[in-house]
Design a protein around this nucleic acid. Structure first.
Lengths: 236, 236
DNA sequence: CGCTACATTGAATCGAGTCAACACGCGTGG
DNA sequence: CCACGCGTGTTGACTCGATTCAATGTAGCG
């Protein structure tokens, strides 16, 4: 679905993205060659094994990056929010996507063509290095997540996930903007921490009973960050 | 402990490493500025949170790259073999190590100083790109491992780990050299797949009973690759 | 209004972790 | 040369967190 987007140079989330490292004229050029789409809730942005055609940049909404295993179960790697790039790793490595990206609400996403992306990489050293460092940081986060799933009980993993989701949009150096509430299905939340819907629900109920979170209209709002933080660091 | 190593240009595992992308004179220069150490079994090569001082390249032996969680439990991320580089991600990102590297047998490792490494990165585009792609691939592998630990039962994870360990030294495009046998402690094997010693041992015994592997002197030799492959792809 | 997607709760089951005891092999020192 | 200790491997019994299965509730929407 087509959509008339703002110009990149005026884009409200430009400074939340890596584009904040680009020159005015670079951003203007990106703006000219980009395309912009609305993806409805549940719609696929790109699919595992497909070859990348460009760099996706989320303008509004959110996207889950996940992997389907041969069991048919979904493992969500991360939730991407406005200002986040998608698929840069596959793009940089000239490889097919290793994950699938699916909109979890109606989401507006811009697509910067591959060629333009590589132009930026080659001509803007800062941009290149920031990207490289982002990739390294991604790998580190993945390692942490791995270690967590292996050893941290579900209760701690859910607590951690809630904190991370609430603290979305924390970008390089900038203070995290806190989201007022978390709006993921229980199923997605479960898949994000590597468990099943029912277990996630039970844990959430516990948290509610303990007054750590509030639930209105299925959406989760965090009441007690400190306590959740503590639970998230407990190992049994 | 000091050790007189071969010159890099004559090093037998040069072509198993990313140095195969370097010019003769580049390799010679690396050889002049590198230092070489023997690490005894159990000795730490570098420690989580320390700042990198250079690039480690394994000449002989093997090293486990792991993370200690606050629970005191170790999660092994990967086992590195001759020709593998260590710590490049932290080096590239100018960040402290996110893991600890420990020799799991007596191991000879060369250290290329940071400055020399960055020289190579800047002057040799091929080397740079190969490194970048390696980092991307690492992240992909980590994702797979994550998804596995979340959903694959221990039996499948052990089967997979055995296959990977047996197929070490598979480098870009080259055919994997098969290791005759796997020589990890049960504890390390357990930590690699995210379980405990006892469970790993039980699974290994099962495999032995099913004639999928043989054990002599504690070391594991794979007898039936296909069947193990099949088990590794089973999800319950 | 009724369909559909999502959320919730209970009961039964099971995979895997924990605890404890013991076996084996190897190197050191008496 | 043997005894001892230590690191590692092995096995059994018990426990428990988490998944599975099944039934039911609730909200939003055409």
């Amino acid at each position: 679905m087509k959509f008339v987007p703002p110009k990149c140079e005026n884009c409200s989330i430009k400074n939340d993205s890596l584009f904040c490292l680009c020159q005015q004229e670079e951003v203007q050029h990106v703006s000219q060659v980009k395309t912009c789409n609305i993806y409805r809730k549940g719609q696929i942005v790109f699919h595992e094994n497909a070859m990348p055609i460009g760099l996706y940049c989320i303008y509004e909404g959110s996207v889950k990056i996940s992997k389907l295993n041969s069991n048919g179960r979904e493992q969500i790697m991360r939730i991407a929010a406005p200002g986040d790039f998608l698929g840069y790793r596959s793009l940089v490595a000239h490889r097919p996507y290793s994950d699938t990206a699916i909109a979890i609400e109606d989401t507006t996403i811009c697509l910067v063509p591959k060629s333009e992306f590589f132009n930026l990489m080659q001509n803007n050293k800062k941009f290149y290095e920031a990207l490289l460092q982002k990739i390294c940081r991604d790998a580190d986060e993945m390692e942490n997540k791995l270690s967590n799933i292996a050893y941290k009980p579900v209760r701690g993993r859910i607590a951690e996930a809630l904190l991370i989701l609430a603290g979305k949009n924390a970008h390089e150096g900038k203070e995290a903007k806190l989201q007022p509430y978390i709006n993921l299905t229980r199923e997605d939340l479960a898949s994000l921490v590597g468990t099943v819907k029912e277990t996630a629900i039970r844990t959430i109920s516990e948290f509610k009973d303990e007054n750590l979170i509030a639930i209105d209209k299925r959406r989760i709002r965090i009441l007690n960050f400190d306590k959740l933080m503590h639970i998230s660091n407990l190992y049994d």
